[in-house]
Design a protein around this nucleic acid. Structure first.
Lengths: 155, 155
DNA sequence: CACATGTCAGATGCACTGAGATTG
DNA sequence: CCAATCTCAGTGAATCTGACATGT
């Protein structure tokens, strides 16, 4: 296959790294930390998950995730539920309040993106939006095995 | 609801959010935290900066940045130097070891991206790479004023 | 019993607020 | 004297390793 040259791929990766330094910080600084936000995001996109699976996708250890879930549960953003299929495991799921956090940050980011897009041309905007489907496929290809439930937060 | 989540822009933002959950974690989990990595990255891309400016771009407070720089300096990844133009300020700059960290993580991410790109078609790859220039311009537009712009300091 | 899942306990890294030292 | 820049001190949240209780 005619794979893109290494330099083009390297330049693409660097562009993403630089862009993310901006993109990640578009919404207001949250009272929640980076990992906590990521946990809520993952749960809202992938449905209920066990601690072990969640720890693997977030790339932190189980004890860290246990206390993270403790805090999130105390704040009402997630909820623990026993796993009907396995007595030792529990499933963590996002609550309505948790979804609100994800949605609020998403909306805030959209606003910031909108302002950013005023700096480029219509053609460039089209180029960017054309990449949406590809990014969706890459995200799907890059994440670890599918969880138990296939829930989609649709708003 | 000021911003409809079903718009093309909303879908683009969501695709980026989901993709970043993968992209950010492509390289090995580092012994350095998220902020520390971001500081070294920023310094390697934008040249020496004062603590205040760095704290602003990283969206953390000055005391947090002071201790972050303390640790990074102790590990040999950055270096403090007096600002010749202002006696109370000091300039923080990345060292060769710091550049190695950035480069190593970049290379690792390129490898992961390369593997990911095998899941999509040539046409999709082209679409993605066409977005490189646009992302570069967006990153430039989104970051706060950049007084220094040196990049070929490969000590 | 061996293994998987989750939690507990102690140490360290990291960020915040509020106060202080130095320079412009 | 006042403002800007950075550092120090104390507090709280976040993560790690190692040990442990429970269920398969």
């Amino acid at each position: 296959m005619p794979t893109p040259s290494v330099s083009a791929l390297g330049r693409f990766a660097r562009a993403l790294e630089d862009f993310n330094a901006v993109f990640i910080r578009l919404p207001e600084p949250a009272r929640l930390g980076f990992s906590a936000l990521s946990v809520v995001h993952t749960l809202s996109r992938r449905g209920p998950m066990r601690i072990t699976d969640l720890a693997r996708t977030e790339q932190i250890k189980q004890p860290a995730l246990t206390s993270a879930v403790d805090r999130l549960e105390r704040d009402g953003l997630v909820r623990r539920r026993p796993d009907p299929a396995d007595g030792r495991a529990s499933l963590v799921e996002v609550t309505a309040a948790g979804r609100d956090v994800v949605r609020s940050r998403h909306d805030s980011r959209v606003d910031g993106l909108e302002a950013l897009l005023e700096h480029i041309t219509d053609e460039e905007r089209a180029t960017l939006l054309a990449a949406t489907t590809v990014l969706e496929r890459l995200a799907a290809a890059g994440r670890p095995g599918a969880p138990h439930d296939e829930e989609n937060d649709d708003d």
